[in-house]
Write a protein that binds this DNA or RNA. Structure first.
Lengths: 243, 243
DNA sequence: GCCCCTGCTTAACTTTTGTTAGGAACAGCG
DNA sequence: CGCTGTTCCTAACAAAAGTTAAGCAGGGGC
C-alpha cells in the first residue's frame, strides 16, 4: 500500500474541512509511518496505555470505548478512514479509554516525535491537527446530547445521519447505502441502551420503512422520515474551514 | 481586580496539571484582557456565534449547553474559575453550543489575535492550551459514560465527585462542602433526567445520608457511600503533567 | 407586610427501558 | 456435513424514568 493510498482519506477530509495548503499535505506524506493490520474486535490501545505514536485509520472502522466497574461499556465515538483517533496522545501521555477495531482495519502509526518536529517547522500543520482534535471534541459533545436528551429511536436516527455525513466526506456512501459494522450489542453501547432495546428500535424502524440494517450495511428507505427522527443539524461537524 | 487575582485560578490549575514554566505563566499576564461581568442565567455566547476572543473564568460557574428542536436542553460541561470554556474558538470559528453563566460571573476576554501571537513566540504556551482543550474533551467523554451507562443516582454521585476534584485544584473545597450552584432543573439537564427525577434522587441520597444539596452548596455526609455510588476514577481529569 | 415568582417537593399514573430467558439464523471450522 | 459460537430476534415481566398536576417554601420587590 503506497503512502498516497494510505493518506488519501485523511487528505480528502482535510481538503474540505480545513484550508490546509498543498504543501502542508505534502509535508504529511514525508512523515515516517509504520503500517499495522488489526482484526475485527482487536484492541488497538488500552485504557491506561502510554503512547509514543499516533495512528491514522487507512481502512476500516474503530471505536473509542470505556468500561465501568460493573462491566458496562460505553462507546464514545466511531472512527472512520481518515480519522486520527488518538491524536490527543500528543499531549495526554496516558490513554483514558480503549481504542478497538470494529472491523478488520489498516492503521498507520506515526511517532509523536516526528509529528512534533513537523509542527515545529510548519506551525500550520499544528493548527490543522489542533483543529482536528477540536472537531473531534465537538462530535463527542453532540454525542452527549444524543444519549442524554433524545429518545432511543431518535438517537439511532441521529447516529445514522452523522455517520453518513462523515462517510460522505471520503466518498464512502453509495446511493442510500453505507457501512456501519456494529452489532446490535455495540449499537446499544453507543446509544446507551441494551441490545434488546436496540433490536426493538431497529425492528420498529424497519417496519415503518425508515432504515434497514443488515450485515453491517445501512440502507435508508425513507429519507424524509429519517430526517424527521434525527433532527440533525450538522454544524457541529465543522465541515467547512470557516465553521 | 488585578491581573494577578484574575489569573490566579488558571495559574494554580496549570501549575499542578501541566509543566508550564514560570516564564510561560508570566507571559500570560502580559496578554491584554477585557473584564466583563455576567449575571446568573445570562448567556455569554450563543450557538452559532462567531468569536474573536476567548474567555477565562475568574469567578463564578458557567455551563456549556445545547438545546434541541423540541426545546429539551442538555448541559455538556460545567466550568469553574480557571477554565477557558471557549478556547476551541481559536480554531473553530462558529460556536456549536451555548455558554451560559450559572451564577454571577466575572470573566476576562482575550483576543484570539493576541493568543495567536503569544503562541507563535512561545510554542510551549500553545502546547499548554492545546492540552487544555484535550483535557476538556476527556471530561466530556467521561460525561457520555455517565449519561449513557450509569443509573441516575450513580450519575449524580459521579458528577459531585468530579466537581469536587476540579474545585479542589483551585482551593475551592472547604471540608466536605463546596459550591454547585445548579437548580434541580439544571442538574437534570446535566444528568439527562427530568427535574422531577432529579428531586427523587436527591431525596433518596439525603435520606440515606450520602449528600445534601442546599442553596447551591453540596455537603458530603458519607464519603464511603458516595465513593461506592460514584465509582469515580479520576484519571480522565489528567491532573498530573505525566498523565 | 404582602405579592409574585421561582424553585422545591410530592403523588399518581404512564411510558420507556432493562432483565431474563429462550429459540432461530447464520457463519466458520473440523 | 454437522458442530459450535455468535448474533439476531422475540416475549413476558420488572424497574426506572417521564408526565402531569398540585401544593409549599423562600427571597426580592413594592
Amino acid at each position: 500500500m503506497t503512502v498516497e493510498a494510505i493518506m488519501a482519506p485523511l487528505f480528502r477530509r482535510l481538503q474540505t474541512t480545513t484550508d490546509a495548503g498543498r504543501d502542508d499535505l505534502l509535508a504529511l506524506t514525508s512523515l515516517p509511518t509504520t503500517l499495522r493490520q488489526y482484526r475485527e474486535n482487536q484492541t488497538i490501545l488500552r485504557d491506561g496505555d502510554r503512547t509514543s505514536e499516533c495512528c491514522l485509520i487507512a481502512d476500516g472502522f474503530c471505536v473509542r470505548s470505556k468500561t465501568i466497574a460493573d462491566g458496562r461499556r460505553q462507546i464514545l465515538s466511531i472512527h472512520l478512514p481518515g480519522d486520527l483517533p488518538d491524536l490527543q496522545g500528543l499531549h495526554l501521555p496516558a490513554m483514558d479509554h480503549d481504542l478497538v477495531a470494529l472491523s478488520d482495519c489498516t492503521l498507520v502509526f506515526i511517532a509523536h516525535a516526528a509529528i512534533r518536529d513537523l509542527i515545529r517547522s510548519r506551525p500550520t500543520v499544528g493548527d490543522i491537527f489542533w483543529r482536528d482534535t477540536l472537531v473531534d471534541a465537538a462530535v463527542v459533545r453532540e454525542w452527549i446530547v444524543n444519549v442524554g436528551q433524545r429518545a432511543a429511536h431518535n438517537r439511532l436516527a441521529h447516529l445514522i445521519v452523522e455517520l453518513r455525513e462523515r462517510l460522505h466526506l471520503t466518498g464512502r456512501v453509495t446511493g442510500n447505502t453505507f457501512a456501519m459494522p456494529l452489532t446490535q450489542e455495540q449499537l446499544g453501547e453507543a446509544l446507551g441502551v441494551t441490545s434488546v432495546h436496540t433490536n426493538r428500535i431497529l425492528r420498529q424502524l424497519r417496519i415503518e420503512g425508515v432504515v434497514e440494517l443488515q450485515r453491517g450495511m445501512v440502507r435508508i428507505l425513507n429519507e424524509t422520515k429519517l430526517q424527521e427522527l434525527a433532527q440533525f443539524d450538522g454544524r457541529y461537524l465543522h465541515l467547512s474551514p470557516s465553521s
